[in-house]
């Protein structure tokens, strides 16, 4: 088998680029901890309240420290449960100051859902029996729509919430 000289150069450059890409993402993942979410934490899909984070009173936004927040979400067809406000209405919007570190934790009560804070890197599959979680720093002010981006049924496109990151 014979390779033309130019093809050798091309393959060395091409494979070299792939190695560089892999090194960059590998460095981020293994040394800086930016793996895609993969915690393998399981939960009882028939009773997600058995996990402290998904008890009704713990849903939604919780401030844990200065500039540190946790957002717990119970997903079900076709709704994100972010808890209730003082008047007892369902929370649909979460407000977080810019620069905060936010841990998003989600679990589903029924089928597979998606959880994407659109326009950010918070993009997770939410699958029955597992807790999905991802920590991020909300550095850019703006209004972000949380969308369910995995098909969950006829009301899939009606499943959303909002995150406001304010200055």
């Amino acid at each position: 088998m014979h390779l033309h000289k130019f093809e050798k150069i091309w393959l060395v450059c091409g494979i070299g680029s792939l190695v560089v890409f892999l090194f960059i993402v590998g460095y981020g993942a293994f040394w800086q901890g930016t793996h895609p979410q993969s915690h393998g934490v399981t939960i009882d899909p028939y009773n997600i309240e058995s996990n402290e984070a998904f008890k009704p009173e713990n849903l939604g936004l919780t401030k844990v420290d200065d500039d540190k927040y946790i957002v717990n979400i119970a997903a079900s067809a076709f709704n994100y449960d972010l808890g209730k406000d003082e008047e007892g209405n369902a929370v649909k919007t979460i407000r977080i100051p810019k620069g905060s570190t936010v841990l998003f934790q989600a679990a589903t009560k029924d089928v597979v859902h998606g959880f994407h804070v659109a326009g950010t890197n918070v993009n997770m599959m939410v699958e029955p029996g597992y807790v999905s979680s991802l920590e991020t720093v909300m550095d850019n002010a703006g209004t972000y729509t949380i969308v369910c981006n995995e098909y969950c049924g006829v009301g899939h496109h009606m499943m959303y919430a909002t995150v406001e990151v304010y200055e």
Binding site: G14, L22, H35
Partner: peptide
């Protein structure tokens, strides 16, 4: 890649293998 129940190291190993499949397309 964004699923909660798979070990990230194994995800990365398959990412490396995925990049291998680019090579025949470069050829």
């Amino acid at each position: 890649l964004t699923e909660p129940g798979i070990d990230p190291t194994w995800k990365f190993i398959q990412v490396v293998l995925t990049f291998m499949v680019v090579i025949p397309s470069l050829m």
